[in-house]
Simulated scan of single mutants.
Amino acid sequence: MYLDENLGRTYILDKLAILIPCYNEGKTIRKVVTDCLASCKGIPNTSVYVYDNNSTDNTVSEAKIAGAIVRHEFQQGKGNVIRRMFRDINAESYIMIDGDDTYPADEIPAMVNEVLEKNVDMVVGDRLSSSYFEENKRPFHNIGNVVVRKSINFFFKNDIKDIMTGYRAFSYQFVKSYPVLSQGFEIETEMSILAIENNMHIENHVIEYRDRPADSFSKLNTYSDGLKVLRRIISLFKDYRPLHFFGLISLLLILIAAGLFFPNVWIPYLHTGLVPKMPTLVVCGFLLITGIILFSSGLILDSIVKKEKREFEFRLIQIHNSFEDQIR
């Protein structure tokens, strides 16, 4: 509990919760926690939470020594850890940062200020506009980040500069309204698209990136996790933009049907009055019917998505009221 002197209110929740998902980060976690606490001395009632995800090294003991509150999530996967953190922790603002010491903790006050003073729902720590491509020694990670960003820019038309960053600030409303569905490293992509599609306030904050220390190793598999992210983007495009998704497939099938029908069926029929390729006519008919069904499905699903967006707005109001109830 703390008193906000500027607003004259007493809060029963943290002013700032720093959330650090961890799996075998014993080499760096003590420094990350120490840096976070040092950078937030001017923010009252700040807590650092390290959520251990079945680490087999000294991550837990190092985090405790540094002054973090250590909790556990036994279901493996970064998405599962974030789901647990978002359920457990109540705070006015949140910082999510990785435990690998690749992000500068001294940017926390500026990112939190965006949330507290400007009512931003998600502040994205943008590595790609600064030092990421010089610091990161894994070229396929660089390519993957660019591909993911361009894919989401193409499908969802947004201005997020760094989709895969693990350094973000969140509002209470975002954390409590976000339904975590991904289990692994696709989680950053999922939360970015949810914020875009629900018209939440997003800001980019350029940060300096530094590569992992030499004796620290990434748990991200460039190829398998990269494919999971791309599959997730396509799946979310289908879920959030069903009319576009099914409309494109419908248009493709109708174009194929037309390409087969006119030269093989229609033109010979005009000249001879006969249909020389009956199987082609049948295939064209099936393609046309399938295209119409898919387009109709897209229209129906689009109406459902719009209804869900309206319901999401009502949930935000309920979450806001719940937040106000925690203020005495």
Rank of each mutant, 00 (worst) to 15 (best):
S297M: 14
P268F: 04
M1P: 13
G8F: 00
F312D: 00
V70I: 06
T59C: 10
E186I: 03
G8I: 06
Y167Q: 06
E117T: 13
T222M: 05
S216Y: 01
S235C: 05
I187H: 12
V283D: 00
L287A: 08
A258Y: 07
Y172Q: 06
N90D: 08
T272W: 06
D98Y: 03
E190N: 05
E197L: 08
V229P: 00
F86I: 01
G285K: 10
I187R: 10
T272A: 04
I12S: 02
I193R: 02
E135S: 11
F237H: 10
V32L: 02
Y11I: 06
T165W: 10
E311F: 10
R127C: 15
F314K: 14
G42L: 12
E134R: 15
A169E: 03
G259F: 08
E5P: 11
Q76L: 07
M96R: 02
Y51I: 15
I152E: 01
L252K: 05
G26C: 06
K64I: 01
S235V: 04
H72I: 07
S39G: 13
S47L: 11
D159N: 11
T56D: 04
E25V: 11
N153T: 09
S296T: 14
S93H: 10
F314V: 11
N113I: 02
D100I: 05
F323P: 12
D88H: 10
I293S: 01
A91V: 12
T222A: 11
D52I: 15
V112E: 05
S297W: 11
R149W: 12
H72Q: 12
R127I: 13
P213H: 06
S296M: 13
N113D: 14
G259P: 01
L243T: 05
V305W: 02
K238N: 09
F133W: 05
E73I: 14
I256A: 13
V81G: 04
H205A: 08
L116F: 03
R231P: 00
K309F: 09
S177P: 14
S322Q: 14
F174T: 07
W266V: 11
D159Y: 15
S151L: 09
N80K: 08
L248Q: 09
L294Q: 01
H244W: 07
V265D: 04
F286M: 14
F314I: 13
N54F: 03
Q326I: 13
I256E: 00
L227C: 01
E5D: 12
N153M: 13
D106C: 13
Q76H: 10
L181V: 06
E117Q: 15
L7Q: 04
H244Q: 07
F156N: 02
R87C: 14
N158L: 05
C36D: 07
H201G: 04
E92K: 14
S322M: 13
H244N: 03
P242T: 00
F133S: 02
E92V: 15
L287D: 00
I95M: 02
E203S: 06
T10R: 07
L128P: 01
F154K: 09
N153Y: 14
D126V: 14
V146M: 11
I29D: 02
I289E: 05
I249M: 05
C36A: 15
D14L: 15
